[in-house]
Design a binder for these strands. Structure first.
Lengths: 213, 213
DNA sequence: CGTCCCGGCGAACACCTGTTTACTGAATGA
DNA sequence: TCATTCAGTAAACAGGTGTTCGCCGGGACG
């Protein structure tokens, strides 16, 4: 297609990327049952089956691996968010679609979701910051998309922002609840979905009658 | 007052309680910069200034100390919650009072708040469960108190519950945001308060027009 | 008074940790 | 073809860890 600088990844590079990915996978797997700050470098290399020193060929730190996992977990989600928000829809249908999308994402990537939920307030500052920045970006995108709705006429930028943050936080809470449901803790998935739908409905109602109540 | 069974705490017991409290304090202090699963038993005893083996005289585990910290952090809050909710008020005033109470609590007990926020989805199952149970109790109390409002006429128990959970989750998020503000990360305290007030106003609006929107 | 209880101590146990060092050997590129 | 690059190795380093043991000494109590 385009003869621009796509330098044909040499076999060596692909192999390096392969083991780097293996490290990330092993890390994510171990993080199902512990938090990043208690994860050991040797633990990971042992699972992958290589010498501890080789870890440094790919990451400086464990927190370095952590922020890489943040990208992997949240990076691919921006497209999904835009897709959900850009389709002009009946409001109820949009909520339904949103909740279903969250449920599916949690079902398909439970370890990533667990990682983000756990490390969002976890003990590793760099990872916390990376997650916070990514969630901020989500809030920006949501605010921008919501501003296009006719319901948002007359809303200040600050109000749009606070609404977007409310939505983003709610999505994170819902994802975490879905995760608990998938593991048998707490209510089952359908209950979580129903609660989430109603909460979103309630917020939407508040949004519609804002400044008039 | 009452000559019931209050067995006059013997000097030995008070001393034991004293060092137990010292262990809890030291743990909480260390948990400012790390998570529970990475906290070392020896770290704590070193801070307190006693032999590692003495730890077992007070706690079986580190997770045991963790659930004790959960009680200490959240146990005293139920009275506060009831107090806020039981005063019949103008709605705006109630919101104002709620946000101010959260801000004050975070200011006065930052380490406890940080601990709860961090371990709520953290790596120690027992502590996670303890926090979850306590937050469930809060949701129960909020639901019960809100049901007394005239706005709640015709609300099903399930709807009350989903509203209460929305409030509780929002309070936790707000407390965490206040904490970030206190540490210079993110927006300052006044911005957090304004956002929180508006979000609560929006939810209240949604509540007022529920089932009519 | 004498006995028991029990919180705290110090030492030792076996094990695991992150990091550095010098090295190998295959893919690389002139 | 030959020199170079570099992902991965093995070994050693200096620490740290949780847990167990027997012992001490002062409050508790019959």
């Amino acid at each position: 297609m385009s003869h621009t600088s796509v330098p044909t990844p040499t076999p060596r590079e692909t192999q390096k990327a392969r083991t780097r990915c293996a490290l990330l996978d092993a890390g994510l797997r171990l993080l199902e049952n512990q938090s990043l700050s208690s994860l050991g470098l040797r633990e990971i290399t042992r699972v992958v089956g290589m010498a501890p020193a080789a870890f440094y060929r790919h990451f400086r730190d464990l927190s370095d691996l952590g922020v890489a996992l943040v990208e992997e977990s949240l990076g691919s989600l921006h497209a999904v968010v835009r897709e959900i928000l850009e389709v002009p829809d009946d409001e109820a249908a949009r909520i339904e679609r949103t909740v279903e999308t969250i449920a599916r994402y949690v079902r398909e990537h439970p370890t990533h979701v667990r990682f983000v939920a756990r490390e969002r307030h976890g003990g590793v500052p760099a990872v916390r910051a990376a997650i916070g920045a990514e969630l901020d970006r989500f809030a920006d995108e949501v605010a921008e998309a919501l501003a296009a709705d006719e319901v948002s006429a007359g809303w200040s930028a600050e109000d749009m922002r606070m609404l977007a943050e409310l939505y983003v936080d709610h999505v994170v809470m819902t994802a975490s609840a879905f995760l608990d449901a998938a593991l048998g803790e707490g209510p089952d998935e359908e209950s979580v979905a129903r609660t989430a739908r109603r909460q979103l409905m309630l917020i939407s109602t508040g949004r519609r009658y804002w400044r008039e109540g």
